[in-house]
């Protein structure tokens, strides 16, 4: 489904990713874990088309999207739940959700998708007219996931969905991730909360200092002592 091959990503002349390759299969949940500053967000932003790799390629179902303008990547079936949620803060929840379905194919199925999103997050239906920026962190996170789902993605990119949330909310968010992928959507999950991420993933990559340093089935990584020493540097 997703094949990232040897991408190098820079901010100006600061290199953030060094020859990173990642693969995600149909309906798979793959987590990318690692300490902060390791380049996890850079990776998902590159897949979403927000950042452009200097070299390497990103393919969705064999179609190269590396050089496609940002506003067209979503047509390839990619949607992002960005770090810090980044809802359109001055607009209502309903507007945020509608904008998720901005591109043509998603717009056609908008009403239907909206029903589905409201069934996943009943709270959002109650809050539909509230200004997004005025909601609590957990509600915003749900709205951000809802917005991404409105795009009818086949690949959902989730960047630190648990950051700053209470444990109960984190459970809820992770439950939704499971539900979504059981519907056939592939998920790339970026998390600092390594253990929680590994629990729900099929496979995982460890990213440290901009490089993939470990990869494999999630359960294996969870029990591997080198993971801890790579993350903590001891």
């Amino acid at each position: 489904m997703l094949r990232v091959t040897d991408i190098d990503v820079f901010y100006g002349d600061a290199q953030a990713l060094w020859s990173v390759s990642v693969e995600v299969g149909e309906g798979e949940v793959v987590s990318v874990v690692g300490p902060n500053g390791a380049g996890k967000s850079t990776l998902v932003n590159s897949i979403a088309g927000i950042l452009r790799p200097r070299s390497g390629s990103i393919e969705i179902d064999g179609v190269d999207i590396t050089r496609v303008p940002t506003h067209r990547t979503c047509r390839a079936g990619v949607a992002i739940v960005p770090e810090g949620r980044r809802l359109f803060p001055a607009m209502s929840v309903r507007d945020n959700l509608d904008l998720g379905a901005y591109h043509k194919e998603a717009r056609a199925k908008r009403e239907e998708t909206l029903e589905w999103v409201f069934s996943l997050f009943p709270k959002l239906a109650d809050r539909a007219n509230q200004v997004a920026g005025s909601m609590s962190g957990g509600e915003q996170q749900m709205a951000a996931i809802g917005r991404a789902l409105m795009a009818r993605p086949r690949l959902l990119l989730m960047d630190e969905p648990s950051l700053g949330l209470a444990p109960v909310i984190v459970d809820e968010v992770f439950d939704v991730i499971r539900t979504v992928c059981s519907g056939g959507v592939s998920v790339v999950l970026v998390e600092q909360n390594v253990h929680r991420a590994l629990e729900i993933s099929d496979r995982a990559y460890l990213l440290t200092e901009g490089r993939i340093t470990m990869s494999g089935p999630a359960a294996e990584l969870a029990n591997d002592p080198t993971l801890r020493s790579l993350v903590l540097g001891v």
Binding site: S162, D171, Q192, N193, V194, H195, R196, E199, L232, V234
Partner: peptide
Amino acid sequence: MRDPQVVSAYLGRSADA
């Protein structure tokens, strides 16, 4: 860096824990 609290701040805790 071996303090359990620090470890869990970095690695998170599993749902069971």
